[in-house]
Amino acid sequence: MKILYFAWLRERLNRSEEDIDLPADVVTVSDLIAHLSARDEAFAMAFEKPNRIRAAIDTRIVSHDTPLAGGTTVALFPPMTGG
């Protein structure tokens, strides 16, 4: 699955995207964030407040309990302000 990182997530993780093979127990956006958080200290710090992270699967904004099945790309980004 392709994972895209935006805004300060991209900066903290020093990458804008990556392709990863997900374990079978990663089935929702919430599971994905938890899985990424466990990778290393940088990921743990970037995702220390997972409820603040927004997600989109194949360009559709989704909640954290949304299944990943059928998706090809997940975008993760912090809340944004407009103006």
Rank of each mutant, 00 (worst) to 15 (best):
T81N: 07
S37C: 08
D58N: 13
P23D: 05
S30A: 15
D31Q: 11
R60A: 14
D19L: 07
M45D: 15
I53K: 02
A55M: 05
R54L: 10
T72D: 09
A56G: 05
S30P: 04
E18H: 07
R15Y: 03
P23I: 01
R54P: 01
L36G: 05
D40M: 09
H64G: 10
F47W: 05
D25W: 04
F47R: 01
L76F: 04
D65I: 07
E11M: 07
F43V: 00
R15F: 07
T81Q: 07
A56P: 06
R12V: 00
V62Q: 06
E18M: 06
I53P: 02
A24S: 15
G70F: 09
S63L: 11
G82H: 09
A42Y: 01
I53F: 05
D19V: 10
I57W: 06
P23M: 06
M45Y: 07
M45A: 14
D31V: 08
H64R: 09
P50Y: 12
R52T: 14
E48Q: 14
E48M: 12
F47G: 01
P78C: 11
K49T: 14
D65V: 03
F43G: 05
D25E: 15
E17Q: 15
D21S: 15
A69F: 05
F43E: 02
R52M: 13
I33Q: 01
T28W: 05
F43D: 00
A42N: 13
T66M: 11
A55L: 01
R15N: 03
A55Q: 04
D31T: 08
L32A: 06
A75Q: 00
P23N: 01
P67Q: 08
D65H: 09
R10L: 06
I33A: 02
F77W: 10
T73W: 00
T66Q: 13
L36P: 03
R39K: 13
L13A: 04
A56I: 05
M80C: 12
N14Q: 15
G70I: 10
S37Y: 08
D21K: 12
D19W: 08
L68Y: 09
G70N: 10
R54C: 08
D19Y: 01
I57Y: 00
N14I: 03
E17N: 08
I57T: 07
L13C: 02
N51W: 12
A69S: 14
V26K: 03
A38Q: 14
V74K: 03
R10G: 01
R39P: 00
A44L: 07
V26I: 08
L68F: 04
P23C: 06
F43R: 04
I20K: 13
L32W: 07
R60Y: 08
P79Q: 09
F43Q: 02
L22Q: 11
R12S: 14
N14V: 09
V27Q: 15
M45V: 13
S63K: 11
D58L: 00
A24N: 13
A38G: 15
E48A: 14
A34R: 13
D40S: 12
R39I: 11
A46I: 03
G70A: 10
F77H: 02
A46R: 00
R15D: 05
